[in-house]
Design a protein around this nucleic acid. Structure first.
Lengths: 207, 207
DNA sequence: ACGGAAGCGATACAGTCGTATCGGAATAAG
DNA sequence: CTTATTCCGATACGACTGTATCGCTTCCGT
């Protein structure tokens, strides 16, 4: 058998190139040629990895989704000694992609969401990522509520609220309607309200 | 002087064609030729109305923004006898674009937001629309709070939360992560919490 | 009535797009 | 070493993009 190459790693590298371009030039600026150049491979190599452009974008969006959720999970696992409330705060911080170094990911995400609104095939991996994040939020909220007094009247509802709020804030920061700091303030205020609703004290010390 | 034509109305018509296309085929599917065809004018006519494509998109996004905010205002003005709380509920319903007949506008908005994240010139009209909506929300929240007991600790913060939440929910509905009905439930639950925080009863009867 | 400016739509143009194809280089199996 | 197969990267192709240009028609002002 002839030459063998690690397609998986190449696919990943190409996906990162897609992200870089989507960040810099927007969703329309992602062409196969530019992606190939950015990934430092030939156009043919990209074509061999992905039969079509949509296939490439599909892989890329999955890649980003996994990276974000992985980071969220890592952030939570990093401090297991803390309360569920604190963990939830960190998780939302991570999901909101407010920090400057994650601005690129935020733009990419937004670009994919917009495209997915008209492309059913692109929407599926996005739904999966959202489902994973929502499930994670539900778990944290339920844990936080259990450690407190009241029941969780609707942890799913709270999780959805949180997820939509972070997403919306991310978009508003990208547009420039609010600054990252202001968005952080809004998010933390909402979390404070959530603690109150759950009957827990919340994180007393803010890091 | 030779022939005179009503450019303003033609521009509006073209803007509507832009919206139709952005809704059907996504942000990438908006080409000058397709727009011209959809607007039932020649390509040259489009070019005469807008020097460049970006100019056209700029006008279109302004057009949509004004239409949405106008509808929100109209909805509020329609029932001035109601409480400020009820008015705010209606306003958020309108902004969230959850109803099926506004799904198109929602997609268009999302498309523009995504594009604006990398194009500063497109971001400006969007910021204006957001600012107008936020101001409107602040006013309604302040009024609602005044009719109640407590002060408005941070009406701006609440308004921003509401705006980001509606935006995020709209996106999630478009993706299919939640249904329109579920999103409505989330939104109304948040509003209920807001009434409680403001110390008002909120709308007792739901329309 | 007539001249000229404004509007018209078709066409031209250069560029980029995604995709298909192809001859040659590289390599594992015999 | 030979051979068959997998990968390579360049190039070809047709379609489409945004924009510029050009006769021609239409109509207002004098």
């Amino acid at each position: 058998m002839p030459k063998q190459v690690d397609y998986e790693s190449r696919r990943r590298r190409i996906a990162e190139a897609v992200c870089l371009l989507a960040d810099e030039q927007g969703p329309e600026g992602v062409s196969m040629r530019d992606v190939a150049t950015r990934a430092q491979v030939s156009l043919g190599a990209v074509q061999r990895c992905f039969r079509t452009k949509e296939e490439m974008l599909l892989f890329a969006v999955d890649h980003v989704g996994e990276r974000v959720t992985a980071r969220v999970r890592a952030r939570i696992a990093a401090g297991p000694a803390q309360s569920a409330a604190t963990a939830l705060g960190h998780a939302t911080d991570e999901v909101a992609l407010l920090r400057e170094e994650h601005r690129a990911e935020a733009r990419i995400w937004l670009a994919f969401v917009a495209q997915a609104a008209v492309s059913a095939s692109l929407a599926e991996p996005l739904r999966n990522s959202y489902a994973a994040l929502q499930e994670l939020f539900v778990r944290l909220i339920t844990e936080a509520a259990a450690s407190g007094a009241a029941d969780g009247p609707d942890a799913v509802c709270e999780a959805r609220t949180l997820l939509a709020l972070t997403d919306g804030l991310t978009g508003h920061v990208l547009i420039g309607h609010v600054t990252a700091r202001e968005a952080e303030g809004v998010l933390h205020a909402h979390l404070a309200g959530l603690w109150a609703r759950l009957g827990v004290t919340g994180p007393e010390a803010e890091g």
